[in-house]
Simulated assay, not measured.
Amino acid sequence: MRFAFSTLGLPGASLAEAVELAVRHGVEGLEVRLHEDMPLDVDPRDAGLEVVSMCGYVRIAETGPDEPVIAALRGQLALADRFGALGVRVFPGGNDVEAALRRMEAVAGETRARVLVETHDHMATGAAVGALLDRFGRPEAAGAIWDVLHPWRNGEDPAATLEALAPHLAYVQVKDATGTTPRPMGHGEVPLDVFADLLRGYPGWFSLEWEKAWHPEVEPLGEVIPGAREWVRSVVRSG
């Protein structure tokens, strides 16, 4: 089993604290949020953890000049290489597909780490992200992160999401929610049984994204990790 969590669930904590929590719960990896409130004060690999991705906030398809986006990508990809991460999480942030293609091409091949486009905001569906990456056509340089919530919430059938993203899939972000409020796995309205059926046998990373940074009223991350980890274990075991 390859289970991680996002440090988005630990607002105000250091990376060292995130590592300690992961080790305590037997978590194998981390999505590391690139934010000023989390100093990168340790290397998770020293504790036996893998860094799945560096979660930046570059908006790859936002309309505007290319240079600032490319510069941010270069810096974050270099950081991802330093930590041995699969890549850098980016948001679409707009619908400028041509700009996104230019920006990804500008950094392609410069690092081992890849640009990882999340199903989010203006490209919330697998169809949208998959179409972008199909056009780019360089799987060694770019891939997809499937946040299970956003495509489903935007009316895309989960099977269609998987079909669109399968050639590009870097890893899967798992979560449950009621409306926009995070809930422990199995306590929200996300059809987790459907995702479990689709993901049986999936060999890659599952990462819990617990958005406590945006919803401070929800339970501490440590209270929801066990249920999420057991859900992932059940999917892997049944596969």
Rank of each mutant, 00 (worst) to 15 (best):
L132R: 06
D176Q: 14
V236D: 07
D37S: 15
A78M: 01
V58S: 08
R24C: 07
G29M: 03
K212I: 05
P184E: 05
G130L: 06
M123T: 05
V97R: 15
W152M: 09
V27H: 06
T181Q: 12
H187C: 11
V23S: 07
D134S: 15
L10M: 15
H122S: 13
D176V: 14
G130K: 05
G126P: 07
V190A: 12
A71C: 00
K175E: 09
T119L: 09
E110N: 00
A170I: 03
A72G: 06
A18V: 03
L208E: 09
W231T: 08
D121C: 03
V232N: 03
P220N: 06
D134E: 15
H187G: 02
P167L: 10
V52G: 11
G222F: 04
A18S: 12
K175S: 10
A78Y: 00
G179A: 11
L21M: 13
V90T: 08
P92I: 06
R200Q: 13
P11Y: 03
E217W: 10
D46P: 00
L77K: 01
R89S: 00
F3Y: 15
A164R: 15
L208Y: 14
R2M: 11
R229Y: 04
H25T: 06
E140K: 03
G204H: 01
L73K: 09
D197K: 11
R59L: 08
R33M: 12
V117G: 07
F206W: 06
A13L: 03
A71Y: 00
G126S: 11
M185V: 14
L101N: 10
V27I: 15
P139S: 03
L73H: 08
S207N: 11
W214H: 14
V235S: 03
P158S: 04
D193I: 00
I60E: 02
A141H: 13
D157F: 00
G179Y: 08
L77H: 00
V129Q: 10
V148F: 01
H120S: 11
R45H: 01
A80G: 03
L199I: 12
A166G: 05
A196K: 12
S6E: 08
E17I: 09
W152F: 15
V148D: 00
V148L: 14
A108N: 09
V42D: 08
F5S: 08
A228H: 15
D43G: 07
S234Y: 00
A71T: 14
V235M: 05
D46G: 01
I60Q: 01
P167A: 13
W231F: 15
P39V: 06
A213K: 15
V236R: 14
P44W: 03
N154A: 08
L49P: 06
E219D: 13
R183D: 03
L198A: 09
P39L: 02
T180H: 11
S53D: 14
A18C: 04
A160W: 00
G56I: 03
G227T: 12
T63H: 10
E118A: 09
G155P: 10
D96L: 02
A13N: 08
P216C: 11
P139W: 07
F206S: 02
G201V: 04
F136P: 05
R59Q: 13
C55A: 15
M38G: 02
H25L: 05
N154T: 01
A80D: 03
V32Y: 04
D197N: 13
M104A: 05
G93N: 00
D193A: 09
Y171Q: 05
T181R: 15
P39E: 01
V115P: 07
W231M: 12
G222K: 07
V107T: 07
D147P: 00
S234R: 15
